[in-house]
């Protein structure tokens, strides 16, 4: 199971699939892998992304304009898997497209595509029994979000239900870049450490090398999402190259920090 972080901090990169089209997404993902990301989150566009800020909302609208759907994202995952065996692939989706496909069918197709894990952003752990059993049958890792507002008892439950890593939401709010990382993030990671040995990845608002480095001091990995999606938005026609350059800068931080540690 390649949901592992080979360096510290590990790098998780989110892309909204189908923005601006699926061929570009594939090129971007391959460039991101080439540039050293450990895990790719393949975002499934949704009509009502309540957990997302304006950048990912816009990307979802662009992707939905030409009908990008979950089935196509899974086909894309299979293509990516042929090119990259050791990079983790996580499908990042809202619940409804998965329910519409059918939980069992989704998990089966995802496994055959070579997907390693799934993150359902609006599925709380207490509603997840059916999902968890379908995931288990198909050897898929369920990744759950932990929030700064989650009490300890919930953190424990989230950690117990998760495999691969736990995704720590850095602050209350939707996805998107912020000037400063909230102090919430470090506190949350510390609380999670008490209840799990799984790696903890911090996401929401990690948008540049400095913040990535900062997160690396207390977490195992960081998720960069909106900043990637914004790079795609701003670089029409040279999306893969632009994102590749950005991810290389982030990877350089990991190499530097890993070098110091050893």
């Amino acid at each position: 199971m390649p949901l592992s972080f080979y360096k510290r901090p590990g790098l998780v990169v989110y892309v909204t699939c189908g923005d601006p089209d699926l061929t570009t997404t594939r090129d971007v993902v391959l460039a991101v892998i080439e540039a050293g990301a450990d895990v790719i989150e393949l975002g499934v566009p949704f009509s009502d992304p309540v957990a997302d800020g304006p950048v990912i909302q816009r990307a979802s609208e662009r992707a939905l304009k030409h009908g990008t759907c979950l089935a196509q994202v899974l086909t894309l995952a299979a293509e990516v898997r042929q090119h990259a065996q050791s990079t983790g692939l996580v499908v990042f989706s809202y619940l409804n497209p998965i329910l519409r496909m059918g939980m069992e069918k989704f998990c089966l197709v995802a496994r055959h595509a070579g997907v390693d894990g799934v993150l359902v952003t609006d599925l709380p752990v207490e509603e997840a029994d059916e999902y968890l059993s379908a995931m288990k049958t198909n050897d898929l890792a369920p990744v759950f979000l932990a929030a700064p507002t989650s009490p300890d008892a919930r953190l424990k439950r989230i950690a117990q239900a998760s495999l691969g890593f736990v995704y720590a939401v850095s602050r209350t709010g939707v996805t998107g870049a912020r000037q400063q990382l909230a102090s919430d993030a470090q506190k949350l990671v510390r609380r999670l450490r008490r209840v799990t040995k799984l790696p903890v990845a911090v996401g929401f608002g990690v948008s540049n090398a400095e913040q990535f480095e900062e997160v690396g001091k207390f977490a195992d990995a960081a998720v960069v999402g909106s900043a990637i999606v914004e790079t795609i938005e701003r670089n029409r026609g040279r999306e893969a190259a632009a994102v590749g350059e950005f991810v290389k800068k982030l990877s350089a931080v990991s190499h530097q920090l890993s070098g110091k540690a050893s």
């Binding site: 949704f46 309540v50 009908g67 409804n96 329910l99």
Partner: peptide, 20 residues
């Protein structure tokens, strides 16, 4: 058809891919 929107599992007007 049955689906989830805004925290509610109920009947939802949606397309074949689960977009609302």
């Amino acid at each position: 058809s049955p689906g989830v929107l805004q925290g509610t599992y109920s009947y939802v007007l949606q397309d074949s891919a689960g977009q609302i």
